[in-house]
Amino acid sequence: MKLKRAAWQLHKYLSYFIFAQIFVWVLGGVVFATVPFTELVKGGDYVRQPAAVPMPAHWSHLVAGVEGVQSATAVASAQGPLIKLELARGQRWLNHQGVEVGKVDALAVAAFAGELYLGSGELREVRWLDTSEPRLLGLVDELYGQTGVWQAVFDDARLYLNDRGEYLKVRTNYWVWYDALWRLHIMDYGDGDNFNNILLRLFAWLAFCFVLTGLVLSFYAFRRTLNRRVRTHT
Protein backbone atom coordinates (compact mmCIF):
# COMPACT_ATOMS: atom_id res chain seq x y z
CA MET A 1 0.00 0.00 0.00
CA LYS A 2 2.96 2.31 0.51
CA LEU A 3 3.72 2.03 -3.20
CA LYS A 4 0.12 2.79 -4.07
CA ARG A 5 0.03 5.85 -1.82
CA ALA A 6 3.36 7.13 -3.12
CA ALA A 7 2.21 6.60 -6.71
CA TRP A 8 -1.04 8.44 -6.00
CA GLN A 9 0.72 11.41 -4.40
CA LEU A 10 3.29 11.69 -7.16
CA HIS A 11 0.64 11.27 -9.86
CA LYS A 12 -1.50 13.99 -8.30
CA TYR A 13 1.29 16.56 -7.97
CA LEU A 14 2.66 15.79 -11.43
CA SER A 15 -0.80 16.35 -12.88
CA TYR A 16 -0.88 19.84 -11.33
CA PHE A 17 2.54 20.63 -12.73
CA ILE A 18 2.37 19.31 -16.29
CA PHE A 19 -1.33 19.26 -17.16
CA ALA A 20 -1.20 22.49 -19.18
CA GLN A 21 1.83 21.33 -21.19
CA ILE A 22 0.32 17.92 -21.90
CA PHE A 23 -2.82 19.68 -23.11
CA VAL A 24 -0.72 21.87 -25.42
CA TRP A 25 1.17 18.81 -26.70
CA VAL A 26 -2.08 17.03 -27.54
CA LEU A 27 -3.67 20.17 -29.00
CA GLY A 28 -0.63 20.82 -31.18
CA GLY A 29 -0.54 17.21 -32.32
CA VAL A 30 -4.20 17.34 -33.31
CA VAL A 31 -3.71 20.58 -35.22
CA PHE A 32 -0.56 19.43 -37.03
CA ALA A 33 -2.19 16.12 -37.96
CA THR A 34 -5.41 17.78 -39.13
CA VAL A 35 -4.05 20.95 -40.76
CA PRO A 36 -0.95 20.17 -42.85
CA PHE A 37 1.63 22.88 -43.50
CA THR A 38 0.06 23.83 -46.82
CA GLU A 39 0.48 26.88 -49.03
CA LEU A 40 -2.51 28.41 -47.22
CA VAL A 41 -0.59 28.32 -43.95
CA LYS A 42 2.75 29.27 -45.50
CA GLY A 43 1.14 32.14 -47.39
CA GLY A 44 1.78 30.86 -50.89
CA ASP A 45 -1.89 31.30 -51.75
CA TYR A 46 -1.60 35.01 -51.00
CA VAL A 47 1.36 35.96 -53.17
CA ARG A 48 2.83 35.18 -56.54
CA GLN A 49 6.56 34.78 -56.76
CA PRO A 50 8.26 37.54 -58.76
CA ALA A 51 8.93 36.58 -62.35
CA ALA A 52 12.43 35.40 -63.15
CA VAL A 53 14.66 38.14 -64.48
CA PRO A 54 17.38 37.31 -67.02
CA MET A 55 20.81 38.81 -66.66
CA PRO A 56 21.47 41.52 -69.26
CA ALA A 57 23.73 40.37 -72.06
CA HIS A 58 26.35 42.96 -71.16
CA TRP A 59 26.25 42.39 -67.39
CA SER A 60 29.94 41.45 -67.17
CA HIS A 61 30.85 44.90 -68.50
CA LEU A 62 28.52 46.55 -65.97
CA VAL A 63 30.30 44.93 -63.02
CA ALA A 64 33.81 45.03 -64.43
CA GLY A 65 34.77 47.99 -62.24
CA VAL A 66 33.49 46.44 -59.00
CA GLU A 67 36.16 44.69 -56.95
CA GLY A 68 35.65 41.50 -54.99
CA VAL A 69 32.54 40.24 -56.77
CA GLN A 70 31.77 36.69 -55.64
CA SER A 71 28.47 36.26 -57.46
CA ALA A 72 25.98 38.23 -59.50
CA THR A 73 22.25 37.54 -59.67
CA ALA A 74 19.42 39.19 -61.56
CA VAL A 75 16.39 39.85 -59.37
CA ALA A 76 13.00 41.50 -59.72
CA SER A 77 12.41 44.35 -57.33
CA ALA A 78 10.22 47.34 -56.60
CA GLN A 79 12.82 49.36 -58.53
CA GLY A 80 12.60 47.11 -61.57
CA PRO A 81 15.15 44.49 -62.63
CA LEU A 82 18.36 44.72 -60.62
CA ILE A 83 21.71 42.97 -60.45
CA LYS A 84 22.59 41.87 -56.93
CA LEU A 85 26.32 41.59 -56.37
CA GLU A 86 27.63 39.54 -53.47
CA LEU A 87 30.95 40.93 -52.35
CA ALA A 88 33.47 39.81 -49.78
CA ARG A 89 32.05 42.56 -47.59
CA GLY A 90 28.33 43.04 -48.13
CA GLN A 91 26.31 43.63 -51.28
CA ARG A 92 25.91 46.14 -54.05
CA TRP A 93 22.92 46.61 -56.27
CA LEU A 94 22.98 47.88 -59.85
CA ASN A 95 20.22 48.53 -62.34
CA HIS A 96 20.54 47.25 -65.87
CA GLN A 97 22.29 50.45 -66.87
CA GLY A 98 25.04 49.76 -64.36
CA VAL A 99 23.99 52.53 -61.97
CA GLU A 100 24.10 51.66 -58.28
CA VAL A 101 20.71 51.96 -56.60
CA GLY A 102 19.88 52.80 -53.02
CA LYS A 103 16.94 52.31 -50.70
CA VAL A 104 13.57 52.07 -52.41
CA ASP A 105 10.72 54.36 -51.34
CA ALA A 106 7.36 53.41 -49.83
CA LEU A 107 5.34 54.21 -52.96
CA ALA A 108 7.39 51.81 -55.07
CA VAL A 109 7.09 49.13 -52.36
CA ALA A 110 3.31 49.58 -52.27
CA ALA A 111 3.04 49.22 -56.05
CA PHE A 112 5.28 46.14 -56.21
CA ALA A 113 3.58 44.46 -53.24
CA GLY A 114 0.21 45.11 -54.89
CA GLU A 115 1.43 43.29 -58.01
CA LEU A 116 2.56 40.27 -56.00
CA TYR A 117 -0.44 40.06 -53.66
CA LEU A 118 -3.13 37.54 -54.66
CA GLY A 119 -5.57 37.94 -51.77
CA SER A 120 -8.80 39.86 -51.63
CA GLY A 121 -7.82 42.32 -48.88
CA GLU A 122 -6.81 45.95 -49.06
CA LEU A 123 -3.35 47.39 -48.58
CA ARG A 124 -3.50 49.13 -45.20
CA GLU A 125 -0.01 50.54 -44.85
CA VAL A 126 3.63 50.27 -45.83
CA ARG A 127 6.14 50.54 -43.01
CA TRP A 128 9.91 50.60 -42.74
CA LEU A 129 10.94 48.34 -39.87
CA ASP A 130 14.21 49.48 -38.36
CA THR A 131 13.55 47.84 -34.98
CA SER A 132 12.16 44.44 -34.02
CA GLU A 133 8.39 44.24 -33.84
CA PRO A 134 6.59 42.98 -30.69
CA ARG A 135 6.07 39.22 -30.82
CA LEU A 136 2.62 38.28 -32.10
CA LEU A 137 0.60 36.33 -29.52
CA GLY A 138 3.59 36.97 -27.27
CA LEU A 139 5.56 34.23 -29.05
CA VAL A 140 5.96 34.73 -32.79
CA ASP A 141 8.50 36.96 -34.47
CA GLU A 142 7.70 36.85 -38.17
CA LEU A 143 11.17 38.06 -39.13
CA TYR A 144 13.19 36.17 -36.49
CA GLY A 145 14.82 39.39 -35.35
CA GLN A 146 15.62 40.73 -38.83
CA THR A 147 15.32 44.50 -39.20
CA GLY A 148 15.88 46.99 -41.99
CA VAL A 149 13.02 45.72 -44.17
CA TRP A 150 9.79 47.02 -45.66
CA GLN A 151 6.48 45.60 -44.50
CA ALA A 152 3.39 45.88 -46.73
CA VAL A 153 0.35 45.20 -44.55
CA PHE A 154 -2.76 43.79 -46.21
CA ASP A 155 -5.95 42.74 -44.45
CA ASP A 156 -4.97 39.07 -44.38
CA ALA A 157 -1.24 38.98 -45.12
CA ARG A 158 2.01 40.84 -44.65
CA LEU A 159 4.62 41.00 -47.40
CA TYR A 160 8.24 41.76 -46.58
CA LEU A 161 10.80 43.33 -48.92
CA ASN A 162 14.40 44.32 -48.32
CA ASP A 163 15.69 47.89 -48.54
CA ARG A 164 16.25 47.62 -52.31
CA GLY A 165 12.73 46.28 -52.89
CA GLU A 166 13.46 42.59 -53.36
CA TYR A 167 10.62 40.35 -52.16
CA LEU A 168 11.60 38.29 -49.10
CA LYS A 169 8.59 36.47 -47.64
CA VAL A 170 4.89 36.55 -46.83
CA ARG A 171 3.26 35.92 -43.48
CA THR A 172 -0.40 35.34 -42.64
CA ASN A 173 -2.44 34.96 -39.47
CA TYR A 174 -2.67 31.24 -40.23
CA TRP A 175 1.11 31.06 -40.13
CA VAL A 176 1.25 33.02 -36.86
CA TRP A 177 -1.13 30.66 -35.07
CA TYR A 178 0.57 27.60 -36.54
CA ASP A 179 4.00 28.85 -35.49
CA ALA A 180 2.75 29.77 -32.01
CA LEU A 181 1.36 26.26 -31.51
CA TRP A 182 4.64 24.80 -32.77
CA ARG A 183 6.66 26.84 -30.27
CA LEU A 184 4.35 25.77 -27.45
CA HIS A 185 4.49 22.18 -28.66
CA ILE A 186 8.30 21.93 -28.62
CA MET A 187 8.65 24.36 -25.69
CA ASP A 188 11.11 26.59 -27.52
CA TYR A 189 9.95 30.15 -26.95
CA GLY A 190 12.94 31.75 -28.65
CA ASP A 191 13.78 30.83 -32.22
CA GLY A 192 11.21 28.04 -32.39
CA ASP A 193 13.53 25.48 -33.99
CA ASN A 194 15.16 23.68 -31.04
CA PHE A 195 12.97 20.63 -30.50
CA ASN A 196 15.45 18.95 -28.16
CA ASN A 197 15.91 21.67 -25.57
CA ILE A 198 16.41 21.10 -21.85
CA LEU A 199 12.91 22.24 -20.92
CA LEU A 200 11.29 19.83 -23.36
CA ARG A 201 13.45 16.94 -22.13
CA LEU A 202 12.60 17.74 -18.50
CA PHE A 203 8.87 17.78 -19.17
CA ALA A 204 9.14 14.62 -21.27
CA TRP A 205 10.61 12.78 -18.29
CA LEU A 206 7.97 14.24 -15.98
CA ALA A 207 5.27 13.12 -18.39
CA PHE A 208 6.82 9.66 -18.45
CA CYS A 209 6.69 9.55 -14.64
CA PHE A 210 3.09 10.72 -14.79
CA VAL A 211 2.21 7.86 -17.14
CA LEU A 212 4.21 5.39 -15.06
CA THR A 213 2.42 6.32 -11.84
CA GLY A 214 -0.85 6.14 -13.74
CA LEU A 215 -0.02 2.58 -14.75
CA VAL A 216 0.72 1.68 -11.13
CA LEU A 217 -2.63 3.11 -10.01
CA SER A 218 -4.37 1.35 -12.88
CA PHE A 219 -2.83 -1.93 -11.75
CA TYR A 220 -4.16 -1.47 -8.22
CA ALA A 221 -7.57 -0.44 -9.53
CA PHE A 222 -7.72 -3.47 -11.81
CA ARG A 223 -6.64 -5.78 -8.99
CA ARG A 224 -9.30 -4.32 -6.68
CA THR A 225 -11.99 -4.79 -9.31
CA LEU A 226 -10.84 -8.35 -9.97
CA ASN A 227 -10.91 -9.19 -6.26
CA ARG A 228 -14.45 -7.83 -5.94
CA ARG A 229 -15.64 -9.97 -8.83
CA VAL A 230 -13.97 -13.03 -7.33
CA ARG A 231 -15.64 -12.43 -3.96
CA THR A 232 -18.98 -11.87 -5.68
CA HIS A 233 -18.82 -15.24 -7.42
CA THR A 234 -17.66 -17.21 -4.40
Rank of each mutant, 00 (worst) to 15 (best):
L94S: 07
W8V: 05
F222R: 09
C209T: 15
T234F: 15
N194L: 07
R183Q: 11
V176P: 06
V149P: 05
F17K: 00
K2F: 09
R224G: 11
R135Y: 03
V63C: 03
R92Y: 04
L137H: 04
L82I: 11
Q9A: 13
S120R: 12
H11C: 08
F208E: 03
G102T: 07
P81N: 09
G165C: 02
Q79N: 14
F208W: 13
L206P: 07
N194Q: 14
L129H: 09
E122W: 07
L85C: 07
I198P: 09
Q97A: 14
H58S: 10
F203S: 05
T34M: 10
F154Y: 12
F112V: 07
I198A: 12
W182D: 02
V109N: 02
E115N: 12
A64S: 13
H58C: 01
G28Y: 02
N196H: 10
P50T: 08
H185L: 08
L159A: 06
P134Q: 07
V30Q: 02
W93L: 08
T232L: 14
G90W: 09
R124T: 03
D156S: 11
D163N: 12
D130S: 15
D105W: 07
Q49P: 00
L10G: 10
E67C: 04
T34I: 08
L3P: 06
Y174G: 03
R229M: 11
Q151G: 08
E122A: 15
T73R: 15
Q97R: 14
F210A: 07
Q70A: 10
L136D: 12
R158T: 10
E86I: 10
G28A: 10
G29F: 01
A51T: 10
D193H: 13
A157R: 03
E67T: 13
A74Q: 09
V63G: 00
Q146H: 11
G138W: 03
D155Y: 06
Y174P: 03
L143S: 10
W182N: 05
W177L: 14
Y13H: 11
S71L: 03
M1P: 00
E115A: 14
C209Y: 14
M187I: 08
V126Q: 02
V41S: 07
I198W: 14
R171A: 13
W8F: 14
K169R: 15
A106W: 03
H185V: 04
R231Q: 13
P56E: 04
R48F: 05
F195W: 13
K2N: 11
A108V: 01
G119M: 05
C209H: 06
V109E: 04
V216Q: 01
L87G: 05
R89T: 14
E125I: 06
I83Y: 00
L143N: 13
W182I: 01
M1E: 09
L139E: 02
S218P: 00
R231A: 15
L206N: 06
F19D: 01
Y167A: 01
H96I: 05
V75C: 02
D191G: 15
L143M: 13
S132M: 15
L137G: 05
V170R: 02
E133S: 11
H185Q: 08
R164I: 14
H233I: 11
G65L: 00
V216A: 06
E67S: 12
Q9C: 13
A113H: 00
